[in-house]
């Protein structure tokens, strides 16, 4: 199947710093993927609904505010409740190492910390969705 990879880029929580989310969205689009950007202040429910509606293979969450331990597990729970375990969840932002390990243990496919290259993000998503 030559269907293009579909990715939802989402900004959950109250934070408005969308520089990273926008840069990633453009990089994925330039790499040939279909990118849907949710805009700001999305609840976990809104994100999972959008992922369902848009039929994406990957969700990318951008979180810089320190609220990841509250938000990410909720998104994972909702994915499970909706039988969407095949959708890969990746998280980017300011995520300390120990939190990143815990999120991965709970089911996050990858965590990208500051300084991660665009190429590494693109490659990971291509492999995960392939």
């Amino acid at each position: 199947m030559d269907r293009r990879i579909r990715v939802l880029v989402a900004k959950p929580g109250l934070d408005g710093h969308d520089r990273g989310a926008k840069v990633i969205a453009r990089a994925l689009r330039d790499a040939g993927m279909e990118v849907i950007y949710t805009g700001l202040r999305q609840t976990p429910e809104m994100i999972v609904n959008a992922a369902l509606q848009e039929d994406v293979q990957v969700i990318g969450l951008s979180i810089l505010s320190g609220a990841h331990n509250t938000i990410v597990p909720r998104v994972l729970d909702l994915l499970r409740q909706n039988q969407m375990e095949d959708v890969k969840l990746v998280v980017g932002g300011i995520i300390p190492d120990e939190d990143a390990a815990e999120l991965k243990r709970r089911g996050v496919a990858a965590v990208f910390q500051p300084g991660a290259s665009l190429e590494s993000v693109v490659e990971f998503i291509r492999a995960a969705a392939g």
């Binding site: 929580g13 109250l14 934070d15 505010s65 320190g66 609220a67 331990n69 509250t70 938000i71």
Partner: peptide, 15 residues
């Protein structure tokens, strides 16, 4: 939002 608002969950005092 006040600290007890549902949108504040996980964000109080963080930034």
């Amino acid at each position: 939002y006040d600290s007890d608002h549902p949108f504040s969950e996980g964000e109080v005092g963080k930034c």
